[in-house]
Computed example of a mutant assay.
Amino acid sequence: MEVNFKKSYKFAFKSSLYISLFTAAVLLLFNYYFHSVNNWFITLFIFFTFVFSFFVIQFRVERFIYKRVKKIYDDVSLLENASFRNQPITTDMATLTKEVKKFARDKKLEIETLKIREEYRREFLGNVSHELKTPLFTVQGYLLTLLDGAMDDKNIRKKYLQRAEKGVERLIYIVKDLDMITKLEAGDINIEPSEFDIVELIQNVFELLEMRAAKKNISLTFDLHYKRPIKVIADQEKIQQVVTNLIVNSIKYGKQGGTTEVSIEDLVNNKVIIRITDNGEGIEKHHIPRLFERFYRVDKSGARSEGGSGLGLAIVKHIIESHSEKIYVESEFGVGSEFSFTLEKAK
């Protein structure tokens, strides 16, 4: 480590001055009584005393401080803070205090971040185990029932195997979503932008989800008839998943006989915004900040009865952000919700 002495000799100067004044007083007093000392000698002696004291005090004090400060640097270096460890050792107390305070702040922030991550990790593991446990136990229950003798009844065997298959499908769905969101968060999924018609893509999603919406008598519509294609630039497959997840969500929480309406509007800076609006149950305000967290559910019992992985909105957020775009949500409890996101419009 490099030693960085501050070029301020105020302490040594004052200390040397006090010693010199004391020496001068003693010599003058001695000369007053004995008249045996030459005045020039007294002046030179005081001057050299001052110079000698100044350098001795400056050197000794800085060495004294340096040894103790170095121990502080060595101690904090054990905490593996490279930025602090690589700094030159300073004997200036103001600079040292500032550095130690900054080091303490950084460490406190680091500890708080680790605590948040640890809490998030525990919550995530708990959610994963809970999500996987339900379909696993369901499949296990049906299979054990069949092994215990129900297999001999053809009707029961077929029904239970079909139910077990649904449980396995949900497990596969959860695992696929987990794999995708892990890759999205790690940046392992590449975005492959292309030019496509967002109106046609939404219409295809409507057709895919038509039967699911029909079970709750929910109509899937545009806000108006779009006569011309609206071309955007994005990863078509991933944007289709975004639209699918948002519409599935609106159906899941939509009311019987409700509507899910999609609108496409032009924005400034060559952008379009896609709005997906429903007149479902809506979301209470205190839930909105956490909507895009993994496995977060507004209505835990209701959502699980509807199925799903609990990762849909988290995947939506990551896909949109990986396009360097924005996603928004507005909701009024008991009235409905609107999810919207932006995309780059093709020129």
Rank of each mutant, 00 (worst) to 15 (best):
T145L: 15
V205K: 11
V3S: 06
V56S: 07
F295Q: 11
S337G: 09
H130T: 07
R85F: 12
S20W: 02
E169K: 10
V128D: 00
L114I: 08
T342L: 02
A234M: 08
R275P: 04
K326P: 00
R294L: 04
S129T: 10
N279S: 11
S8Y: 10
Y253D: 04
K216C: 00
A346D: 09
V26T: 12
R163I: 04
E131H: 14
I274C: 13
E200C: 10
F55S: 02
G126P: 07
K227C: 04
I189W: 07
G149R: 09
N245Y: 13
V168D: 09
N217K: 09
V128M: 01
N204W: 01
P88N: 08
S219H: 02
L171C: 00
S83P: 05
E332Q: 14
K238S: 11
T244R: 10
W40H: 06
I189F: 01
F64T: 01
R275I: 09
V242M: 13
I202V: 15
Q240N: 08
S263G: 15
R212Q: 12
K71W: 03
E237Y: 13
G280A: 13
A186Q: 14
H318I: 01
F292S: 03
F222A: 11
K6V: 10
K115I: 15
E325T: 03
N4G: 01
K7Y: 07
T91D: 03
V175D: 09
Y253T: 04
S16T: 06
R290E: 05
Q58F: 06
V139D: 09
Y33V: 14
V51R: 02
R297C: 05
K271S: 05
P193I: 14
R60K: 08
F222W: 12
K227I: 06
M93H: 11
E123L: 09
D235K: 03
F34M: 06
R212G: 07
L291N: 03
D153W: 02
F196A: 05
I247V: 15
N39P: 06
S36I: 14
E99R: 15
A150Y: 13
T23I: 15
L79D: 03
V56A: 08
K300L: 07
E2M: 07
Y142L: 14
Y66W: 10
V26C: 15
E2K: 15
T277A: 10
R290T: 05
S324A: 00
D75E: 02
L136R: 01
F22Y: 14
I42Y: 08
N155H: 06
L78W: 00
T43L: 03
V175K: 02
S77I: 05
V51I: 13
E237C: 04
N38S: 14
T90M: 05
I327M: 02
G126M: 14
E195I: 12
V61Q: 00
L246V: 04
K67Q: 11
V262Q: 07
E325I: 03
R297P: 00
E165V: 06
L21N: 06
F11C: 04
R122Q: 12
D179H: 09
R157L: 14
E261Y: 01
K326I: 00
V56T: 13
H318Y: 01
L161C: 02
N204I: 11
L224Y: 04
I320R: 07
V329F: 10
Y142V: 08
D106I: 12
K102D: 11
